[in-house]
Amino acid sequence: MRSKQWTVQIYISEDDTDERTLARAVLSAEDSGWHESVGVARRNPDDRAVPEIGDELAAGRALMDLADKLLGDAAEDVARLGGPTVEAR
């Protein structure tokens, strides 16, 4: 059986006021290139600053977008090869 490794790196940055967090998820796949997705989280100014929550929300949103892109790629590949329709999500 052939083994493959795909790597996802998540880069997180926060603004100086901890009101906006941006996460960039980058997937590197040895045989199929790479994808990049972005997720953003914004804190309500009335809420207490808990940076970990912004990190989790932004990273989760970036990963969800990355998953949608991968499912879209698979659906396009199946359609191109004439297989049964695959629902992207």
Rank of each mutant, 00 (worst) to 15 (best):
L71M: 07
A29S: 15
A88G: 04
A58T: 04
K69T: 12
M64W: 08
E56H: 02
I12F: 04
V38C: 04
V8Y: 05
L70H: 06
A88E: 08
D18R: 14
A25R: 12
T7K: 09
G83F: 10
G54V: 08
S3H: 13
R48D: 01
A23T: 13
G54A: 09
Y11H: 08
E36L: 01
S28Y: 04
A25K: 14
V86M: 15
L22M: 11
S3M: 14
A79T: 11
G33S: 03
Q5M: 12
T85F: 10
V8L: 03
G54S: 09
D65F: 06
V86H: 04
Q5K: 15
A75E: 03
A62H: 06
S28M: 09
Q9C: 07
D31C: 05
K4H: 13
L70S: 09
S13V: 13
A25W: 13
A23I: 14
L57E: 10
E52W: 07
R2N: 09
D31N: 14
T85Y: 08
L71T: 08
E76R: 12
N44S: 10
D68I: 00
D77H: 11
S3W: 13
A59N: 03
R42E: 04
E56V: 06
T17E: 15
G82R: 10
R61Q: 12
E87Y: 14
R20C: 14
D65I: 10
E36M: 10
I12V: 15
I53N: 08
G82E: 04
D68C: 03
I10E: 06
H35Y: 11
D55K: 11
Y11G: 02
A23H: 05
E76F: 03
R24W: 02
A58R: 06
V50S: 02
I53T: 13
A79I: 03
T21D: 02
G54H: 08
V26D: 04
G82W: 09
A49H: 05
R48F: 04
A58Y: 00
E56Q: 10
P84N: 11
D77A: 15
P45C: 10
S28H: 12
A75D: 06
D73A: 03
R43D: 01
T7A: 01
D18H: 15
S13K: 11
E56G: 01
G54T: 13
G82H: 08
R24E: 13
Y11S: 09
T7N: 05
P84F: 03
M1L: 06
G60Q: 05
D65R: 15
V78W: 00
A75F: 11
V50W: 02
E14D: 11
E52L: 13
W34C: 09
Q5C: 11
A74D: 09
L22R: 15
L63N: 00
G83T: 11
W6T: 15
L66C: 03
L27H: 12
V8C: 01
R24N: 05
E87Q: 15
S37C: 10
A79C: 00
D16A: 11
P45V: 12
I12M: 00
V26N: 04
A79N: 08
D55N: 08
T21W: 13
E76D: 11
L66W: 05
V86S: 07
K69Y: 06
S32F: 09
M1P: 01
W6G: 15
A67Y: 10
T7L: 03
K4T: 13
V26A: 07
D77P: 00
D65T: 14
E14W: 04
E30K: 07
R48I: 05
D73Y: 13
D46T: 14
D65P: 00
D55Q: 12
